[in-house]
Design a protein around this nucleic acid. Structure first.
Lengths: 339, 339
DNA sequence: AGACATATTGACAGCGCTGTCATTTTTGTT
DNA sequence: AACAAAAATGACAGCGCTGTCAATATGTCT
C-alpha cells in the first residue's frame, strides 16, 4: 500500500538508517549515496509517516495556533504566514479557536493544552497577554510564542509592533492635518495593545500641548458594535470632535456607520482613523486611514521560532533576539482630511 | 516525564490492553474495571500519545481544512464548526490555505496531499468544485467532503445550501418590493455556487415575466473590487436599475461604495442585495439585506462525516444521506426598500 | 607500509499504542 | 452439579521510524 522507508532502502541498496539520514539532512552521508537515496525516494513517491517519526523522536511535527475573537482577516493572515513556514519544514498547523478565553482558568488551559499534541503554540492577542494561559504553558513546559502582546516584558519569544509609537504617529498625523479636537475610542483593555495605543494617543496629544476632552474618550472593546456605541456617545455631547481615532478598524467602521446615520459626513465633517489595516479598512466608504502591521510576516516569524531548535537557556542575547518588534506603516486613505 | 498507558494499567491493576479498551470505549469491559481504569487515568492525568496510537491504528486523528481565497469570516466559521466536532472526538484540524488553486494541476494537488497526514479532507468552495483537486483526492483514495460546492452531482459527501433557490428568493423579494429594473453581479463562474445563484436570479425574473436588461448583468469574481468595477459599469449605462443583486456580500459592498461615491443613495435610489451574510454585511452602512447560510453547522457536519466510520460502498441510501442541503435564510436589513 | 584518526554505513532495539488470539472468569441451562 | 456459551481479560507482536553504538571504509601521517 503505502511505501515505507524499508522499500526506499532496498531500492537504493542501503540501510534504512542511511535513508533516514538523507531524509533528515544529517551529515556524514557521501554524495553518491545521497543521490541514490533521493532518487529512489522520488521514484517510489515516498513520504515518511509522521506518526512513526513522531513516536521515534518524541516530537509531533505539529504547531498549534490559538486565537480568540479577533478579526477574521487578522487570524487568517497569521495562519497563512505560519502555514507557509510549516510547509517548508514538514510541520503542520493545527488551529483552535478559544471563546471567552478571559473567563478560563489556568486549570482549564492545562486540560486544553494537555490534549494538544504539539511542539509549540502560537498565541495571538488577547491570548498573548492572558496570564492563566501563559502560566499553563509554563507549567506544562510547552514552547510558545506570542503575537501582538507585550514585547519587552515577555518571558517567551514575542512578536508585535510598537503599538504605542504607531498610535502616536496616527495621532500626530491627525494633529498635523489641522485637527485639535480629537476623540479616541479605546479597545478592550485586556489587550496590552489597547493600553499601548491609548498611551500613544495621550503622548502625542501632550507633546502638542492639546488638552484631551474626556467626553470624547470612550471605552470600546474592539468590536464593530462597540464602535457604534462609542460614536453615539460622543455625538451626544455638547460639542463634537473633528476627528476620532478608533483603536482598531472594526470600531472605526462602527463610528463611520453611526456618523453616516446621523448625517455627519466623513471626512468632510469628521476624520476617522483606524488601526490594523484589516480587510474592513478597505471595505468601508470612504476607506479608512489606518496603521498597517505586517501580520503575515509576523505569523511566519512565529512559526520559525517554534520550529527552530530552542536556544540555550543562558544565552541572553539569543533570547532577546526573540523579542521582535516589526515596523508598522501609516496608511492614508479617504477617511481623513486636512482642515 | 509523560505518563504512559503502562502506568495507568499498573495503577488500576489491569493489563495495558484493558486500559486501551476503556479509553477507546470498546465493549466487553466490566463496569467495575472501567471505573477503576478511568479513575487511575484521571489521577495520573493520562493523555494517550497521538503518534503511538496513530502508528498502531494507521489512523492520523487529523483532518485537514483546505481553502482558497474566500471571505475570512466564512473560513473561520467553518473552522470553528469543524474544530468543535474534532475536539469531541480527539481529532485535530490542520489548515491549509491554497492560493490560486485554479491554476494548479492534479499532480500539484497529489504532491500536496501526499504530505498531508490526515484521515479526511474538508474542501471549501472554490476547491469544492475543482476537478483537479477531486481527481487527486480520488487517486490517493483520501476521504473528503465538500462545502458550498455542487451537491446532487457530487461523488463524495457534499454540504451546502440550495444556492439557486436562495438567489431566486432574494430576487423574488426585490420584485415583491416593487423593483422591476434589477441588475445582477455574477460571481466567479469557477464556483458552482456562482452559476447556481445566477440561475436563481434568471428563474425568478422569468417567473415574473420581467425581462432582464443585459446591460445590468455584469461579471464579477466575488471580490470587493470586482463589485466596484461592476457598479461603475452598470452606472455608466444609459438607464439605471433600481436594485442590484450582487451574488456575494463583498461585491455588494463594492457596489454600495461606488454608489456612495457617485451620489446614488442606498436604499433610497438603489436597493442592494448581497449573499452569504458574512461579517461584511453588518459592517457596511446601510447594512446589507442578504442570504444567511448556517456556515458553522456546515463545518460541524463536514467534520462529523470525516470522523464517522465510512459507510459501506453499496449502501446507496447512506451515501445519499451524505448529500446535505441546509436551509438558508433571507435576512432583510436596510440596504433594500419598497418602491 | 603501518598506525592511527576520521568519515561513512549498518544492525538492532524501542518509542507507546492497539490488533490478534489465547486464556480465564462469569453466566446460563439442563 | 456439570457443562456449554459468552463475557472479560491478558500476552505479545508489530506499526514505521530514529537513536545508539558498533563495524567498516577512507584518508593522513610518519
Amino acid at each position: 500500500m503505502k511505501t515505507r522507508i524499508h522499500d526506499v532502502a532496498e531500492r537504493a541498496g542501503v540501510s534504512m538508517k542511511t535513508v533516514s539520514r538523507v531524509l533528515n539532512r544529517e551529515p556524514n552521508v557521501s554524495d553518491a549515496t545521497r543521490d541514490r537515496v533521493l532518487e529512489a525516494a522520488r521514484a517510489l513517491r515516498y513520504t515518511p509517516s509522521l506518526a512513526a517519526r513522531g513516536l521515534a523522536t518524541s516530537k509531533n511535527y505539529l504547531l498549534a495556533l490559538l486565537y480568540d475573537n479577533v478579526s477574521p482577516s487578522y487570524v487568517l493572515k497569521v495562519q497563512q504566514g505560519a502555514t507557509n513556514i510549516c510547509q517548508e519544514s514538514g510541520y503542520h498547523l493545527i488551529v483552535r479557536p478559544i471563546r471567552e478565553s478571559i473567563s478560563l482558568t489556568r486549570e482549564d488551559f492545562v486540560v486544553l493544552l494537555e490534549r494538544l499534541p504539539v511542539d509549540g503554540v502560537i498565541l495571538t492577542s488577547p491570548l498573548s497577554d492572558n496570564p492563566a494561559m501563559l502560566a499553563a504553558l509554563n507549567q506544562l513546559n510547552i514552547r510558545h510564542v506570542t503575537i501582538g502582546g507585550a514585547i519587552q516584558s515577555a518571558s517567551c519569544p514575542a512578536i508585535g509592533i510598537d503599538n504605542r509609537q504607531a498610535a502616536e504617529e496616527m495621532t500626530r498625523f491627525l494633529i498635523q492635518s489641522g485637527h485639535k479636537k480629537i476623540g479616541f475610542v479605546k479597545g478592550d483593555m485586556y489587550h496590552i495593545s489597547a493600553r499601548m495605543r491609548y498611551e500613544g494617543y495621550k503622548t502625542a496629544m501632550a507633546a502638542h500641548n492639546i488638552e484631551i476632552n474626556p467626553e470624547w474618550v470612550v471605552q470600546g472593546d474592539y468590536s464593530y458594535t462597540s464602535g457604534e456605541v462609542a460614536a453615539r456617545d460622543i455625538f451626544s455631547r455638547s460639542s463634537r470632535p473633528t476627528a476620532i481615532f478608533a483603536s482598531n478598524d472594526d470600531m472605526a467602521a462602527g463610528v463611520m456607520a453611526i456618523a453616516g446615520h446621523m448625517g455627519v459626513s466623513v471626512p468632510d465633517d469628521l476624520s476617522v482613523g483606524g488601526f490594523d489595516d484589516t480587510a474592513t479598512a478597505g471595505l468601508v466608504w470612504p476607506r479608512l486611514s489606518t496603521i498597517r502591521q505586517p501580520v503575515r510576516e509576523m505569523g511566519e516569524k512565529a512559526a520559525e521560532f517554534m520550529i527552530a531548535p530552542p536556544c540555550r537557556e543562558n544565552d541572553v542575547a539569543a533570547v532577546n533576539a526573540q523579542h521582535l518588534s516589526y515596523e508598522h506603516h501609516l496608511i492614508i486613505r479617504e477617511s481623513t482630511r486636512n482642515i
